[in-house]
Computed example of a mutant assay.
Amino acid sequence: MRLIFLALVLLVSLTSGAFAQNKPLTVFGAADLRYALDAVVIAFNKEHPNTKIETIYGSSGKAYAQIRNGAPYDLYFSANIAYPESLIKDGFGIGEAKLYAIGRIVLWQRKGGKIDLFKGISVLNDPAVKKVAIANPEHAPYGVAAMQTLKTHGMWDGIQPKLVMGENISQAAHFAASGAADVGIIAYSLALAPEMKQIGEPFVMIDYKDHKPLRQGYMITKTGANHPLAKTFAEFIEGKTGKEILKQYGFEVPTE
């Protein structure tokens, strides 16, 4: 009977290990990572064939709340390192929150737009600008950066009637790209995406001094602690290939 019991324990252990190996790695990425992280996954799969990775994109703040309520993400890439730091502190992850990139924001409009973006942020006061797209500052770090920029220039209160807020920076970019807004304050990484470059005018960088740094961080969640690929993927994005891809999409990456 003891031998039978030990055999059953071994079988369950092997089965659990195989299940963990075959279970897709679920990665949440802030909306500004949509194109960059997709490229990282493709590169990762080339080095690690037969692995399955599911990516989910949205606002960092909403994902933060979801993880606190049991969302089964294995890794959480936030546009604000403060979110994963808070989750780690409260026991929702393992190890430490790590900085993976610093983001930037830009002024962007569709081709054929009548606004001279090279006049800078003050151009948003032009009567020809009816709608300005930004991410919602309540839960999107890129929205906070847009708000801080407008406040730096004394424009926040006056620009309120023009604002069209997206749930995340990707939706804000969509508003600008679709014509629902005349101009968008969007992520540099999204402005560099091929389809955005194809339909947009030359965009203009917003001075990084106009807002607090967009320090972006990630963590392995408690769920991810049990997935054999979580640490491997984290090491990959911190490695040479991962960093090069992030740089291609306009992110500043931490050095050794």
Rank of each mutant, 00 (worst) to 15 (best):
Leu33Gly: 08
Ile53Gly: 10
Pro254Gln: 13
Ala172Trp: 07
Ala181Ser: 08
Leu75Gly: 07
Asp207Pro: 05
Asn22Lys: 14
Phe236Gln: 07
Leu107Met: 04
Ser86Gly: 02
Pro72Ser: 07
Trp156Val: 02
Ala97Trp: 07
Gly166Leu: 06
Arg2Cys: 00
Glu244Asn: 15
Ser16Cys: 05
Asp157Cys: 01
Met205Leu: 12
Asn22Met: 10
Ile105Thr: 14
Gln21Lys: 07
Ala181Leu: 03
Gly17Ile: 08
Arg68Ile: 01
Glu238Trp: 01
Leu10Gln: 01
Lys119His: 08
Met219Tyr: 07
Gly250Thr: 14
Glu195Phe: 10
Ile88Thr: 02
Gly154Ala: 07
Ile245Tyr: 04
Ile4Phe: 02
Ala20Lys: 02
Pro141Asn: 06
Phe203Gln: 09
Ile53Leu: 15
Leu229Glu: 01
Phe44Gly: 01
Glu47Leu: 04
Phe175Leu: 10
Gly29Thr: 15
Thr152His: 14
Gln248Ala: 14
Gly61Arg: 07
Ala193Gly: 12
Gly112Trp: 02
Val27Asn: 12
Ala18Met: 08
Val132Ala: 05
Ser13Pro: 04
Tyr208Ser: 13
Gln198Ser: 08
Gly143Phe: 13
Leu37Ser: 11
Pro141Met: 01
Leu37Ala: 13
Ile42Gly: 01
Leu11Phe: 09
Glu252Asn: 06
Ala172Ile: 12
Ala71Asp: 05
Asp207Lys: 14
Lys247Leu: 08
Asn69Glu: 04
Arg68Tyr: 03
Ala230Ser: 15
Gly29His: 15
Ala79Asp: 14
Asn226Arg: 15
Val204Glu: 08
Ala20Cys: 04
Asn125Arg: 14
Tyr100His: 08
Ala187Ile: 13
Ser16Ala: 11
Asp182Cys: 08
Gln248Ile: 02
Leu87Trp: 09
Ile121Pro: 02
Asn22Pro: 00
Ala43Asn: 05
Phe251Met: 09
Asn226Lys: 14
Leu8Glu: 03
Met155Lys: 12
Ser13Asp: 09
Val164Ser: 09
Ser60Met: 03
Ala234Val: 12
Ile105Phe: 07
Arg34Gln: 12
Ala82Glu: 15
His227Leu: 04
Arg215Phe: 13
Leu117Asn: 10
Phe118Met: 06
Glu235Ile: 09
Ser86Trp: 03
Asp32Thr: 13
Gly113Ala: 11
Val27Asp: 11
Lys243Gln: 14
Leu11Lys: 01
Ala225Glu: 02
Arg110Asp: 05
Thr152Tyr: 12
Ala128Lys: 15
Leu246Cys: 02
Gly17Tyr: 13
Pro137Thr: 12
Lys46Cys: 00
Leu192Lys: 15
Ala180Thr: 05
Gln171Pro: 00
Val106Leu: 06
Ile206Gly: 04
Gly17Met: 12
Ile105Leu: 05
Ile185Arg: 08
Ile186Trp: 01
Pro254Asn: 13
Gly112Met: 03
Tyr64Cys: 05
Leu87Gln: 09
Val9Gly: 02
Phe233Leu: 11
Gly95Ala: 06
Met155Ile: 05
Asn50Leu: 02
Tyr218His: 13
Gly166Ser: 07
